[in-house]
Design a binder for these strands. Structure first.
Lengths: 238, 238
DNA sequence: ACGCGGATTTGATGCCGATCAAAGACCAGT
DNA sequence: ACTGGTCTTTGATCGGCATCAAATCCGCGT
C-alpha cells in the first residue's frame, strides 16, 4: 500500500489512520506517511454526541478539525438572537478558521460525530512545511464559497417550495449513496428552517405538500425517499 | 525603497507596478521584485468601461485578475433568468476562479475599472513557486467566504429596511475614506436589489424612508451621506 | 401499557414586500 | 432648450409567508 518501499525509513502508520474512512479525502490525503504521523501527533480523536458545541462564536479561536463521521453546522446570530445556519460540514470536511484570532461562528454537532481535532497554532505550523496541504485547504475554502453562494441564490430568489426541493436534492447528493434515493436528514425541521431562512411551520407545510403530490415519502421523523426526482428537480428550479 | 540592496542582482521594476496604488494590497504584495517582474510578464493591464463583462458564466475559465480600481460584481442566474449578485470586488481584490475549468459566475464591471488580467494557467504555475502568494489567496478566499455568509444572514433573516441599512454601512466601510461619511454607490438601484434579494421598488422605498427620517441624504442619483450613523446602525440590527 | 414532554403538523389571520401601473427625474444628443 | 430614453420614485392591490394558536404524533422512561 503506502508504506516502506525498499530503502526508505520504515514508518509505522497509526492504526487509527490506516483504517480511517476519510484517509483519502480529508487533509490527510495530501500527506506522505511521515507527515501523517506528524499530523496524528498534534491531533486528538474525539467522539461528540449530537448537540455538543465544538466552537463558541466569540471565544478565542483555538482549534480546527477534520470531520471523520457525522454532520456539523456553522451558525451566526441574526437579529433578535435568532440563529442562522451558514454552512454544513460532512465526513472529510475541514471545520474551523485557521487564521482568525476570535471565532465568529458557533460550530455545533448535529448528529453524533467523530472528529480529529487539532490545535490551530500547531496546524498552522505544519502548513508551512506541506504546500499540498495548503493547496487542499484553498480548494476547500473555494468549495465552501461556492456552497455559500448557492445558498445566497436560494435565500435571495427562491420561494419556499423551491428552497425545500433544492435542499432535499442537495442532502440526497451529500448523504445518499448513489442508487436508491433513501436517506435520513441530519437535522430537525427547525434546523432546516434556520438553514433556509423560513419558519418551522412553512418547512413542514412545504414538505407535506411534496408528500401529498407523491414527489417524496417521509417515513419516520427524519427519513426521506425521493419518489420522483424529475418533478423534485422541476420544483427546485421554480 | 524595495530594489537592489548591495550585492543583489539589480532588477528594474516595471514603472506601472512601481506607481501602482494596490502594489501593497493585492497579490503583488507577496512577491519580491523578481517575482513581481515575472507576474507583470504574464499579465496585461486593461481598462474596462462600466457594463463590460470580464467572464461569462459557462465559458471556459481562462483568466483571473487583480482589481486596480473600480468595482466588479459576480452574478449567478436564479430561476426565471433573474440574476443575483453573489459577490463584489473592490480595488486590491482578486477575481476569478483559479481551479474551475468552466466559469460558473458572470463577472461584470459596475464602474469604469482598471485590471491586471492574468491567464489562469500561467498564474497557477507561478503559485507553485510562491507559497506566500498562495497563502494570500487562501486568506482572500476565506474573506470572500466571510462576506458571503454575512450576506446569507441578511438574506435569510433581515427585513427590507435592515438590509438597506446594512448595505449602506458596508458600502461606507468599503468605499468611503475615514472621516466624512460621503460616498457614491458603485451601482444602480436595480443592482442593489439584485444583491439584497428585493425589487427595485422596495429598494427605492426603503432609501426614501431613511432619507425622510433624516438618517441619510441622497444627493444626485448615487450619492450617499450618512447623517446619523448610530440610527443607521440601529436600523441595520433590526 | 401508560403518561409525559418535545417535535411536528394543521389551522386562522395579518402584514410585508412583490407585482402592476404610472408619473417624475435625469442625461445625452440634437 | 427640446426630445427621447432610461432610471427612479410613488401609488394601489394582492399573495405568500410569518405569526399566533391548538391539535397530533412520537420517543422515552416508569
Amino acid at each position: 500500500m503506502r508504506s516502506s518501499a525498499a530503502g526508505e525509513a520504515i514508518v509505522t502508520l497509526p492504526p487509527r489512520c490506516a483504517a480511517c474512512n476519510v484517509r483519502d479525502d480529508a487533509l490527510c490525503a495530501t500527506l506522505e506517511d511521515a507527515g501523517l504521523v506528524a499530523l496524528h501527533g498534534i491531533g486528538r480523536r474525539r467522539t461528540l454526541p449530537a448537540g455538543q458545541v465544538l466552537v463558541w462564536s466569540g471565544d478565542p479561536n483555538a482549534i480546527c478539525a477534520t470531520v471523520v463521521s457525522g454532520v456539523l453546522k456553522a451558525m451566526r446570530a441574526g437579529p433578535e438572537g435568532r440563529e442562522h445556519i451558514v454552512g454544513l460540514a460532512f465526513a472529510g470536511d475541514f471545520v474551523g478558521d485557521l487564521f482568525a484570532d476570535t471565532a465568529n461562528e458557533t460550530i455545533r454537532v448535529m448528529t453524533d460525530a467523530e472528529l480529529c481535532v487539532y490545535p490551530r497554532a500547531a496546524l498552522q505550523k505544519m502548513l508551512d512545511a506541506h504546500p499540498a496541504m495548503e493547496r487542499l485547504l484553498l480548494h476547500r475554502a473555494l468549495g465552501a464559497l461556492d456552497d455559500a453562494r448557492m445558498w445566497m441564490l436560494m435565500l435571495g430568489r427562491k420561494a419556499a417550495g423551491a428552497r425545500i426541493a433544492t435542499f432535499l436534492l442537495e442532502m440526497a447528493r451529500r448523504m445518499g449513496q448513489p442508487g436508491p434515493a433513501r436517506f435520513d436528514l441530519p437535522m430537525s425541521r427547525s434546523e432546516v428552517g434556520a438553514l433556509l431562512g423560513m419558519t418551522i411551520e412553512t418547512v413542514s407545510r412545504q414538505m407535506t405538500s411534496l408528500k401529498r403530490r407523491g414527489v417524496v415519502a417521509l417515513p419516520g421523523g427524519r427519513g426521506v425517499i425521493i419518489l420522483d426526482r424529475a418533478q423534485l428537480a422541476r420544483a427546485a428550479a421554480g
